[in-house]
Amino acid sequence: MTAPPLQLDHLVIAARTLEEGASFVAAKLGVQTSEGGAHPLMRTHNRLLNLWGGAYLEVIAIDPTAANTDSSRPLLRPRLFALDDPAFLKRLETGPQLVHWVARVERPKVLTRWQAQYPERIASVVAMSRGANSWNLTVPHDGSFPAWQGSGDGVLPSLIQWDTTRHPGASLPETGIALKSLTGFHPRAHVLLEQMAWLGASHLMNVEVTEGAPVLVAQFELPDGSIVTMGETSETIEAAAQAARQAELAAAKPARKRAKSRKPEDVIETADIAETAADSSPDEAVQQDDGQQDER
């Protein structure tokens, strides 16, 4: 039996706090996220939002109530999605961001077996749980994003396989929000495209080259038909900044006064007056002078 291709499972928005992430989504999409739960192993927690078509949006943050030490596991593994990386946490200081996406592995393919066959291609599989839900998820040992030949940066997907036949996203309130497009931008796009093809995930996302930092850009269609975009490429940011600078320069220039053009008939009339004055005879001038003397 041929295994079905990978499916989009969910998008990941990371934030410094869960409240900050939930407010970001509400401001962008106009809908409140639903309560998710805690991930004891990773010491994180999340909130969720249903997307049309079976996928969902996850807001994830470090759980401040989770213990950072555990007597039964003295060496806790790093949190997933780079949430223990100082550079990544610094990035989140500018606000919540769309940072990653997760592809679903459907049975009969078994994720643990697939990873064991190709450990150089697929990160280690971690058994996770949240409430009554349990699943297997690929998470590199250092908690970073999945990578191939040193490149990933959130653009390559993590892989997930749920232990239940009913997808958890089906239990979330319907929002009518649909993911219209998902595009990854990366300086080494060709490397990521190769790995995407090997995984069987090329149909899920476009990958394009950028000269700037890697980024995900997602477009959502709201129930009223409007389109909302999350994520910006460095090229888009620079173009917007350049447009703003040009607008400021244009506003600072003094308005030039345009000289009022003279109508053709005005020019003709002026010329006639000058010609009449020039044609006056000396005799007329003498007669005028004699007349003035008689009056005296």
Rank of each mutant, 00 (worst) to 15 (best):
V139Q: 05
G152Y: 03
P146Q: 13
G150I: 06
A127Y: 03
R121L: 15
S144G: 05
A132P: 05
N133I: 14
Y118R: 12
H141A: 14
G131W: 03
T138E: 08
Y118I: 08
V125F: 12
H141Q: 10
P140C: 05
A132C: 01
P157E: 13
G150Y: 06
S129K: 13
T138Y: 11
S124P: 05
P119S: 06
R130W: 04
S124D: 10
G154T: 03
D142P: 01
S144D: 01
F145L: 00
N133W: 15
Q117E: 12
Q149C: 06
D142S: 01
R130Q: 10
A127R: 14
P140V: 02
Q149W: 07
A132S: 07
S134A: 11
D142C: 02
V125M: 12
R130V: 06
I122E: 08
L137E: 09
L156K: 11
I122T: 07
G152P: 04
G131V: 04
G152S: 06
V155P: 08
V155G: 04
P146F: 15
G143C: 01
V125H: 09
L137S: 10
L137H: 12
S124Q: 09
A127D: 08
E120L: 12
G131I: 02
F145K: 02
S129H: 09
D142A: 02
Y118Q: 14
W135S: 11
S129P: 04
L156N: 12
Y118F: 15
V139A: 04
W135D: 11
Q117I: 06
P119G: 05
A123W: 06
N136E: 15
P157M: 10
N136W: 15
G150L: 04
W148L: 09
N133G: 08
S134R: 13
I122P: 11
A147I: 00
V125T: 13
S129D: 05
G154I: 01
P140M: 04
R121Q: 15
V126N: 08
I122C: 10
A147G: 04
S144K: 00
G154C: 01
L156M: 13
W148V: 08
S151M: 11
Q149L: 12
S144F: 00
E120T: 08
S124H: 10
G152A: 07
P157Q: 10
G154V: 00
T138I: 15
G150P: 06
S144N: 03
R130C: 12
D153G: 04
V155T: 13
P157C: 12
N136F: 14
W148S: 14
E120Y: 11
A123C: 14
P146T: 08
